[in-house]
Design a protein around this nucleic acid. Sequence first.
DNA 1: CGTCTATTTGAATGTACTCAAAAGCGGTGG
DNA 2: CCACCGCTTTTGAGTACATTCAAATAGACG
Lengths: 198, 198
Amino acid sequence: MEIESEKYFKKFRLHIEKYVHIEDAEFDSVCRYFEVEKVSRKTCLLEPGKICRFENFVVSGLFQTTVSDESGKTHTLNFPHEDWWVGDFKSFSSKTPSVMRIEALEDAILLKISKSSLDTLLESSPAFASYFQTLSENASIAANERIIQQLSQTAEQRYVLFNQKYPNIKGRLSQKKIASFLGVSPEYFNQIEKRNKF
Amino acid sequence: MEIESEKYFKKFRLHIEKYVHIEDAEFDSVCRYFEVEKVSRKTCLLEPGKICRFENFVVSGLFQTTVSDESGKTHTLNFPHEDWWVGDFKSFSSKTPSVMRIEALEDAILLKISKSSLDTLLESSPAFASYFQTLSENASIAANERIIQQLSQTAEQRYVLFNQKYPNIKGRLSQKKIASFLGVSPEYFNQIEKRNKF
DNA sequence: CGTCTATTTGAATGTACTCAAAAGCGGTGG
DNA sequence: CCACCGCTTTTGAGTACATTCAAATAGACG
């Protein structure tokens, strides 16, 4: 099993090295703060009202982060998958109850880290700290771009963009779930899809 | 004039100390990386196609960050004002052309810093680095919350929220500008405002 | 004072939603 | 392996939210 988890950390390292260079020794020390977790389809990583105790690097699998509004409708923030992070960063860093639900849509493998471990890690590894800084910057840039899209584009244009941006997860998601990400009703999404079939 | 700019840096320090504690000496060294800039109403800090060379702390004044879509419509990302930052972080950090226009809506005073200075500063001041990390985290949290709002709320609900969240800038903005922030037409915004007058 | 832009109003239109009902599909248990 | 149950997809009709266009009025600024 040790061999198994080495594979996961190797993947993690490849991901980190896209952003910063990291030495063997430093990477090894980084790994000690993480734990491997396997979760199966339909498991909830986080539910509304609960505090998000871990941030998780996704080795494999697919998740859905949702919020519900007062009328009971579900809205999707994102679909965290391979080579990305899953968690509610606000709840995690402030230790306050989350408003989100995070559910595994597929069996998944995670590298998880607690808040206290992450704090220590950021103090002790400059390379990881730099990687992590880049990550938050990118997250806010990406979020801003999505806001621009939502402001300036119709549902149909957003649909086209989604297909371009996430070709690899489109086939793994139901229409209903993609609709809740784009911010349109499932019925209307279906019409869009029909129009764009040809 | 030196006395004048000391006032600005004092305000900057009060802002930073909301997030992290910083010693006199360290704060002084931080300040050396910034320059005071006064800009007058209607000045453009950044135009589409240009690279954003500075990030700016707003001591006083009000700005509008916009993007234009292919049909020529203008959309507002935010209204940076006192105690916040203005700039296009994506363009700034990647040194690539921006898609945004940033215009001063009022005479303003800024503390500006270049990319190379910021990089050096983040290396040399742990307190500032920690402040800055918090800043990016908050930025992405705030952006995510706006995405949720845009997904789950009608224009009218967003209008009410805007009034609650930014009571201090509402009076300084035209209806047209607020409409372009909320993502509705000026005409429709006018109807909403009329409905909510009483 | 004149010009330019913002606000207000109304009518016609379009985009996307709700509700309802039928058809398809996938997983589960017998 | 088949039958059933529940959820997703598909379709249509009616509706609501928001836009466009046009025109009149009011404000702001030089």
